[in-house]
Design a protein around this nucleic acid. Structure first.
Lengths: 356, 356
DNA sequence: AATTAGCACTCCTCATCGAAGAGTGCTAAC
DNA sequence: GTTAGCACTCTTCGATGAGGAGTGCTAATT
């Protein structure tokens, strides 16, 4: 779709007017406040054209225009110029991360808080895909007969645990031996490869080692599977959603909260944004597969560590959001988080636990 | 406050009528549907008396009556007869717990889900106070120079981790030694006593052991402090709140969500209910210290393990809740959870991880 | 003395109506 | 191609008033 410059300007005017006020924008407003030196009648003609193209729509005959999803998409893709977040904002966001030594999980939670606070919408963080992180440590704890708690720690400091039922009762001593063995064998291997590595070890060592070790391998195998399957997502700041006039309708809000409860669908939705080639991904209203979210929009960005994408973070809110503000916040937060994950020594660092 | 039987019946009628409909209850309704064989005029007289006593109130002159907080309190304390939850409901709740082998955390999360689903309000679970549980296992993982991840596991299978900054770089080998030592020394000691036990060890062994061990003790000391301070609370099912007509007002709902975000206050509120002597505790509207929750009410019950109280679970919703239904659900769920914690072998047990 | 029927009164709810205002599309003039 | 002008449409909002629910009081009844 190609628009001449003036039509583009009108579209832009309607979009930004609508985003600001939430009300349909009339021809008079456009001609007066957006510096196109033409009369409202001309604007009316252009608007009618844009409506024919499916970019604008009228809620009712005598109202102004609001953009359609298609119109917004065009605006986002080819009209909106994304600027870097202003330094002052950057500093504020940095500051929000600065307090207390935190582990990765806390860091991620805090990220979703920051997103929701600075965008005044719900913040959303998809946790690192474990397959992209490296093995650090595994530990088996015998909770009681036949019940073993398996704790898996990734290089980034993420702790995952799974309860495993085991048909025979293994004493803690043996469990300790297993974990020592595995910690040796698997050190720093990417979790995605741990599975095959385990299988290989099971092949190779069967003859050599105590049968016990094959058990260790099977145990960790199970725990690993659990860990890889569960991708967690964290949504924070629901309250901000309620401040949007479009969610004054309680029934609508209820549907949205309901949609949030089905984490797996949210995960799938955000998976789309795992593509490292694009920095920001925006899913607009009806572009989402989740029908309850057809009135919402997601702005997301991948984050990672040293080049590899680990997860996705972003913001979810009404279609009418201030993208020009939110996009820079999301990209900046993503780069900040990536940076923290990359070199945690540079990360949030008040020395709560430091003796001094 | 003492009421004669008839006045009590009128109060009961107004309360239950109001709870059912959410509307003020008129004298005619009471005289017709609640089997007191007196005319509406008589009821009107009684109602006027009850209003003088501060038990009922009128939203406006020509409306029926609704109970005041005081009236509700009287109803809950001395009129409402609490019955056991019907078997069918019991079975349904039991079933809701039956799927997949779950660890304690998952069990607790599921509990809040069950509460919210069966009460159609928000379910709330205060996590076990660590001080009441016993030490099982500790593990130190060197994430990078000067950063140690301390993982603490309680006998009930709860996993807590804390990141500790350490001024010197301890190799993983030594860390392993520490943990072996501690796991030996602290096995099965209540966490509340671990601290003093550590201090004692630090005293006694200083001369005997390698200085390293005092470090181990200090490390775990720090981690423990963190673990004991953080009491987590989990709230689920916000969506149900929106179904209550009293929260159709968005602004009100926003305030409530805001209150939920301040976990520490919620924790303090629920701490009241940690008293093991009372099975159910109800905090009605203005009885709560949190002003944002003055329009809400909390029904809670302690849960535990073998007699000691570990935490609190319950339901939070509008003051106008169906207590006669919710109280039995809460007490039953609490006893069920306690039972699961007591003998996890009897717990939810589909054998997802069971080879067969 | 307690209960009840009757009634006037209050206050809320809801539908109706019309005026005001915003914005359009069309036409004719520039 | 642009613009002024105008008739027309549609929403919003306040005023109005009927209808209804429920009360409190009084006087009659048991």
């Amino acid at each position: 779709m190609k628009l001449n410059e003036r039509n583009q300007k009108v579209l832009e005017a309607v979009v930004s007017g609508y985003i600001r006020s939430g009300e349909p924008v009339g021809s008079r407003t456009v001609s007066k406040h957006y510096g196109l030196n033409v009369s409202s009648a001309t604007i009316r003609n252009i608007m009618a054209d844009l409506e024919d193209m499916g970019l604008l729509q009228q809620p009712h005959t005598s109202a102004g225009r609001i953009p359609t999803d298609k119109g917004l998409r065009l605006y986002l893709d080819s009209i909106l110029k994304i600027r870097e977040l202003e330094k002052r904002q950057q500093a504020l966001i940095r500051r929000a991360f600065e307090s207390g030594r935190v582990d990765v999980e806390e860091l991620l939670r805090r990220t979703s808080q920051v997103l929701s606070r600075f965008c005044r919408q719900a913040g959303i963080v998809l946790w690192p895909r474990l397959s992209a992180t490296r093995f650090k440590h595994i530990e088996f704890v015998r909770l009681r007969a036949h019940q073993i708690l398996v704790i898996l720690i990734t290089a980034s400091g993420l702790v995952q645990h799974t309860l495993v039922d085991w048909d025979e009762d293994i004493p803690q001593d043996s469990l300790d031996k297993y974990s020592r063995y595995l910690n040796e064998a698997l050190q720093d291997i990417p979790l995605s490869q741990v599975k095959e590595r385990i299988l290989k070890e099971m092949e190779g060592e069967k003859a050599l080692f105590d049968q016990l070790f094959t058990r260790a391998l099977e145990l960790s195998q199970r725990a690993l599977q659990d860990a890889l399957e569960n991708t967690d997502v964290h949504i924070e700041g629901h309250k901000h959603l309620l401040s949007n006039p479009e969610f004054a309708d309680v029934e609508r809000m209820r549907r949205i909260l309901e949609a949030f409860e089905d984490k797996s669908r949210i995960v799938r939705l955000l998976d789309r944004a795992l593509d490292p080639s694009r920095q920001v991904q925006i899913i607009l209203g009806t572009e989402s597969d989740i029908s309850e979210l057809h009135e919402m929009s997601v702005v997301s960005s991948p984050y990672g560590r040293g080049g590899t994408v680990l997860g996705v973070l972003g913001v979810i809110g009404p279609i009418r959001m201030d993208y020009s503000r939110i996009i820079p916040v999301v990209t900046f937060t993503a780069s900040l988080l990536s940076q923290f994950l990359d070199e945690p020594d540079e990360a949030p660092s008040a020395r709560k636990n430091d003796p001094s």
